[in-house]
């Protein structure tokens, strides 16, 4: 496959992985928690490096997974202590991020982590960082990692679809039906952390947040069914990465940034269409008396 195809494939994989999870976050009103986790993952990566002394992906995955769960746990802890969700997210993620940056700046000479790089992402280098097994070139490492996480997420989603759906829309009913709502919450947080870490290395934290929130939000405007929403969101994610790559190619700018902008444009178009349809609906129903 050509260089461009690998980048578009990576972007699309991020789009599908994050797009599906993002839907669940949006209907649970936890969109900003994903923004928080995408920042605190930095601390997980730094700690994993300091403990294992290697830049291997698997350690980073574990470190980031643990810190991601810790973020979700701390936010819940503060919320239980009477601090509103938005403030507790703000407190937890900024503090953990500050700790991460602090550690990077102390061990700056040893760690080959560049904060700019982490935030902006370097999808450009994805095709060169290849995975070789038994001397066979299997393609870019990032694609394999994202693919694995996508499979894990899909399997979990298929097995736990009903419990996740019920506990998202009606936690009280879910508890009454005997569903372990707390387990589902942390299962979801685990999936979010995994997706973020897997996407993080290839596309940077900012595109991860965009891919998590914007496709889901766009799909939420278009449909009322969760299953349709997830499918639409995944497609928006793919479309965003293709259009974004085209923009980046034409204007010679950051690929991750251009993909964010492309998703923003798609969202804006759907948002405006939604407004127009609402207006037309109101106009056609004006003056009519509904007799039921």
């Amino acid at each position: 496959m050509s260089y461009e195809m690998w980048i578009i494939l990576t972007g699309s994989l991020v789009g599908v992985t994050c797009g599906t999870i993002g839907c669940l976050l949006i209907i649970r009103k936890m969109a900003m928690l994903s923004d928080g986790i995408s920042h605190t993952v930095l601390l997980g990566i730094v700690l994993a490096y300091l403990i294992s002394q290697s830049l291997s992906s698997i350690y980073m995955l574990i470190g980031a997974l643990i810190i991601g769960m810790l973020t979700a746990f701390l936010v819940q802890f503060l919320y239980n202590r009477g601090i509103h969700t938005d403030a507790s997210i703000g407190i937890v993620f900024t503090s953990l991020f500050a700790l991460g940056v602090f550690l990077v700046s102390i061990y700056a000479r040893q760690v080959h982590l560049d904060i700019d790089h982490v935030l902006m992402g370097e999808i450009t280098f994805v095709p060169w960082n290849r995975l070789t097994l038994f001397g066979v070139d299997l393609g870019p490492q990032a694609v394999w990692m994202l693919g694995t996480v996508l499979v894990i997420n899909t399997v979990i989603l298929i097995i736990f679809y009903e419990p996740i759906k019920i506990s998202s829309f009606d936690p009280v009913l879910a508890t009454a039906l005997g569903i372990n709502v707390v387990f589902i919450h942390y299962l979801l947080m685990g999936m979010v952390s995994l997706s973020i870490v897997a996407s993080f290395e290839s596309v940077g934290s900012i595109l991860v947040v965009t891919m998590l929130i914007v496709p889901g939000a766009t799909a939420y405007l278009m449909t009322k069914r969760l299953s349709t929403m997830i499918a639409v969101s995944a497609m928006v994610g793919i479309l965003g990465s293709v259009v974004g790559y085209a923009i980046a190619y034409w204007f010679d700018v950051s690929i991750a940034g251009a993909m964010s902008v492309a998703l923003g444009l798609i969202f804006a178009i759907v948002f405006i269409l939604q407004l127009i349809i609402k207006k037309m609906y109101q106009r056609s129903h004006r003056g009519k008396i509904h007799v039921t």
Binding site: D86, V214, G257, A258, S260, V261, G264, F267
Partner: peptide, 28 residues
């Protein structure tokens, strides 16, 4: 105000798209 999206989602959309645009401008 003009859609069924909640405030946190709306914040997330605006935040990420604006920052992404910023990164694009920075590279430009």
């Amino acid at each position: 105000q003009h859609s069924k999206l909640k405030e946190d989602t709306s914040i997330g959309v605006v935040l990420s798209v604006f920052f992404g645009f910023g990164v694009v401008l920075l590279t430009y």
